[in-house]
Write a protein that binds this DNA or RNA. Structure first.
Lengths: 231, 231
DNA sequence: TACTTGACACGAACGCCGTTCGTTTGTAGA
DNA sequence: TCTACAAACGAACGGCGTTCGTGTCAAGTA
């Protein structure tokens, strides 16, 4: 017959839980997807892993590094095309859409991408290589390729940031439409002598969904690339 | 003959300091310019005004509102041109440069601009009107004007964010160049079979200062606008 | 003049953050 | 068995935005 444990005995500690960098990134990505970027704190991630925030620092040097790992994880999902010189424009456009699609799929990642000044991860290089390769395959002069790369990579990231911002508010589609209407009424009530163009174009500025607007923006930029390479 | 003040008496309180929204924005802008965006906390601003953070909330509803006021203050400094149809391209380019210049002059404001999804302040409207007006004066079709406005406004903001990020590090120009060289060596050591375009173009990607790159980017985008309006 | 009311200023505290520091635990090698 | 090192962990540091309750001030009214 066993006696009760005497109260002066130290209770047995739980066995230590093993962590890994991959487990941490997995947990952070799940939280990002479910709750957004602001919820991805070291405490929140540690909580999801049933440990304390200090334990994470054995595997990632800082929260900043954790965010870079998240970005790399997301960029690794973007498939890059094999350049076909006859279709470089469509392929370049498709690559941009895939990149933005991946960023948008994980709210907040675009913000991390913008915060990461010069990405130096495998997949950021893979994407850069693909983008550069497509423009070169299309015969764009190298000097213009460099500019096109600057513009497209920054614009795609910023566009994804914008899309994420639209979607991150705790507002229903109903409230979002109401705000749009309020803005429309506000613009319509601006003084016509000061804002004639806004008044004339107000209906066009909010037109189309994000995908159409991005499509048109890419046509503009890539069109500039294609036309300038004839000069 | 006066006796010493008895110690049980409540010491006389300092007279209340009057605050105003303008004083708060002034203080915040001064801190932003001197110490960067991360230093602009309610506590830091309140400290600069010799008060406590709770006092600020009588004048601004949140830190977010304070940031919007900062942005509006900065945008109010951008002069807008009167449209001249013969020179709309140069004028549009100059307007973009002025906008980015103002954002860059105050580190962190560009981040606020990107965080402010749909700016609804007087000067954001003034700038929008100017940008739209220039493109329309140049005969760009309205549908394309809307796209151009989308692209240019977002790209300018993102570019300013990028410039601010380059300058925000606590690194000397010497260290910055060293990092650039490290990155150059890293890229040069990438496997040539996987990254032929990066290797061929590495020298072009970091070439030129921010102003030249922005200049070229604007040429590309505005060139796209001008050429597409012929189709 | 005294009182009332509402706006403003302020201190304390809440709940959160990233990170460090010192301690404990577990594992591999000698 | 002992040693050394890496990993896990708890407590705490210094910071954040904001709220709540209290006190003060100024203007208006009786």
């Amino acid at each position: 017959m066993e006696l009760p444990e005497p109260p002066w005995r130290t209770p047995r500690r739980k066995p230590r839980q093993q962590l890994s960098r991959q487990a941490i990134v997995d947990a952070a990505l799940a939280i990002l997807d479910a709750e957004g970027l602001d919820a991805v704190s070291m405490r929140r991630v540690a909580q999801a892993l049933n440990t304390g925030p200090a334990s994470l620092y054995a595997h990632v040097s800082s929260k900043e590094e954790l965010c870079e790992l998240l970005l790399e994880r997301v960029l690794s999902q973007v498939r890059v095309p094999t350049p076909d010189p006859a279709r470089w424009r469509e392929q370049l456009k498709e690559l941009c859409k895939r990149q933005v699609g991946a960023l948008v799929e994980h709210p907040g990642i675009a913000r991390i991408a913008l915060d990461t000044l010069i990405p130096a991860t495998e997949h950021s290089f893979v994407l850069a290589e693909a983008m550069l390769g497509l423009m070169r395959a299309g015969g764009v002069p190298d000097r213009l390729v460099a500019i096109g790369f600057d513009v497209l990579s920054l614009y795609c990231t910023a566009f994804a940031v914008e899309v994420n911002a639209v979607r991150s508010g705790e507002v229903s589609p109903e409230q979002l439409r109401e705000r749009g209407e309020q803005m429309g009424r506000y613009v319509a009530a601006l003084p016509p002598n000061r804002f004639p163009a806004l008044l004339a174009m107000g209906h066009l500025l909010g037109e189309g969904d994000g995908e159409q607007r991005f499509d048109a923006a890419l046509d503009l930029i890539i069109g500039g690339l294609a036309n300038q390479d004839r000069t």
